[in-house]
Design a protein around this nucleic acid. Structure first.
Lengths: 157, 157
DNA sequence: GGTGAAACTTCTAATAA
DNA sequence: TTATTAGAAGTTTCACC
């Protein structure tokens, strides 16, 4: 586990909430200099704790209103890596995990509508080695918050 | 669906890749002025297409090596909102959806280890109205890329 | 390690096209 | 709508604690 102190955690907390918070603002809040914030962020970037930054976009407004989770059953687990490599070619699959339990592979897809989703699911079903899939359609995204983790956790640890 | 043109999409593309890309850089790439980039970003913020920005953090390095998906079965679907509100109190649940299909609610958790995960799962099981849960442990996060969506999709549309 | 100030870069808003 | 521009704001470096 990476060595980061309480100040680093507080900096991360602020930046996870909003990447564009000026270092001068963070410095004021934490009673340190902007230079210090700069140096610490740079170190966390170098050590890989900070991997990058991304915009949070409203996909619904862009026409992507459909979210589903899809469990994938394989004929043999030895085909896992091959199937994963094929799944990577489908852009609308935004998350995929190799899992224990019911399914061999577990995916999340984001699509425009049910017609679009159907095409994606058929593409998954068509991959060699996939025996069948099971779809769970999201009726409501009730929680989606990476931020939850850090805020709380850093208090608990 | 929001009205955004090709230039807006290209700006989003760059910023999704790296929120801190200077507007002057984006301007050069797209052969427009930095002022234009500024105005367009501001409009997309106002219209809500851009919801915010977040750091991408390496949770493994911070000691969170355990990811699992948990399907929740309810005694009655009328308890859904109550159960969701209780799940929101557990910080390690980073995603939750109300779903059709096998499960009533579907969660993603991130924990430090199996002991920590056990506590979270027991908390979920203990919520009034939850009849049982089914856990799928992630052995490997093979795909996790919101960027995939925009890049490709914008070409297809 | 951290600071504070200088030098440099980027952002923003107003004006003009 | 877009471009230009000048002043404000933010970032980065560095000599010095």
């Amino acid at each position: 586990m990476a060595r980061i102190d309480d100040i680093d955690k507080q900096i991360l907390d602020v930046l996870i909430e909003n990447t564009r918070t000026p270092f001068t603002d963070i410095a004021k809040r934490l009673n340190i200099s902007a230079g210090t914030v700069h140096v610490r962020v740079k170190k966390m970037e170098e050590s890989g704790i900070i991997k990058g930054s991304s915009l949070t976009v409203d996909y619904e407004q862009l026409g992507y209103t459909f979210i589903a989770y899809i469990g994938v059953f394989l004929e043999k687990t030895s085909q896992t890596q091959f199937v994963i490599s094929r799944i990577k070619e489908i852009p609308f699959v935004t998350v995929a995990h190799i899992t224990t339990g019911k399914f061999n592979i577990f995916c999340k897809i984001r699509a425009q509508d049910t017609t679009h989703a159907k095409k994606i699911i058929f593409m998954l079903d068509d991959i060699d080695g996939v025996s069948r899939t099971e779809t769970m359609i999201s009726l409501e995204e009730s929680i989606n918050d990476k931020k939850r983790l850090l805020h709380k956790v850093f208090q608990d640890l």
